[in-house]
């Protein structure tokens, strides 16, 4: 994980001590750091949008809800392709691609949308959407920073998912983007052994690492080499 991502995560954690929710803090910080007018964070599944987690303002929320109800828009495409969808001039290029969404966006006074997929390999978690009332591209440096916010948002969604599952490990206690290939291989193995999705398999691995107080890489190694088996895991 880059230092910038770690910096964003510790800043939103500090924010949350003053009572602001982590997702609200992240979208707020993102909107302040970049030349955009609004930011939304949405959950995605393989079937499409699955709800808004946070939005900086009314138009951002409206746009998230619009994509949710239509099932079309930049965030849907970003999630499906796994690549950012950059629409610096929605009025010019968006109408053909997403007729209903583009009309709704224009009605909300928005001219540009930049959607970043939040994923861990095949696991689709959500999308971070940046909106602006004026047309024009994001400069390269801002685009690079937006990618760091997307990485931080991915870490955050994994954390929220664990919290919802009742696995109460502290935020930031485990690295999300572990460079070790074995963690991802083990995720695949566990998904078959426990008959769960890759997303849940990663959660099982992290929970086991936390419960056993061992690094996730060590557990992953044991799974890949067949020492540990999740077939009869009571949590699965």
């Amino acid at each position: 994980m880059s230092t910038r991502v770690a910096e964003i995560l510790s800043a939103i954690l500090a924010d949350s001590r003053s009572g602001i929710g982590l997702p609200a803090s992240l979208v707020g910080m993102c909107a302040r750091a970049l030349p955009v007018s609004g930011v939304g964070l949405a959950l995605m599944t393989d079937d499409g949008p699955a709800g808004t987690v946070a939005a900086t303002d009314g138009s951002a929320l409206e746009l998230e809800e619009l994509q949710f109800s239509l099932g079309e828009g930049p965030c849907v495409d970003a999630s499906q392709s796994g690549r950012p969808v950059l629409q610096p001039d929605l009025g010019r290029t968006g109408r053909e691609r997403w007729p209903v969404f583009a009309a709704g966006a224009e009605a909300a006074g928005l001219a540009a949308v930049f959607a970043f997929p939040l994923r861990v390999g095949a696991i689709r978690l959500g999308v971070l959407d940046l909106y602006r009332t004026t047309a024009g591209p994001l400069p390269d440096d801002d685009l690079a920073d937006a990618l760091c916010f997307a990485d931080a948002a991915t870490a955050l969604l994994l954390h929220l998912q664990a919290r919802d599952a009742g696995v109460g490990f502290p935020f930031g206690s485990l690295p999300v983007f572990d460079d070790r290939a074995e963690v991802h291989q083990a995720t695949g193995v566990v998904s078959v052994q426990a008959a769960v999705s890759l997303q849940d398999a990663l959660l099982l691995l992290r929970a086991r690492a936390y419960a056993d107080q061992r690094p996730i890489g060590t557990i992953a190694h044991d799974v890949v080499s067949g020492v540990v088996d999740f077939s009869d895991d009571p949590d699965s």
Partner: peptide, 15 residues
Amino acid sequence: HSRILIEQAKGVLSA
């Protein structure tokens, strides 16, 4: 991320 996807698939297939 493509690399991660390949590693996940290796794990799934090996199991």
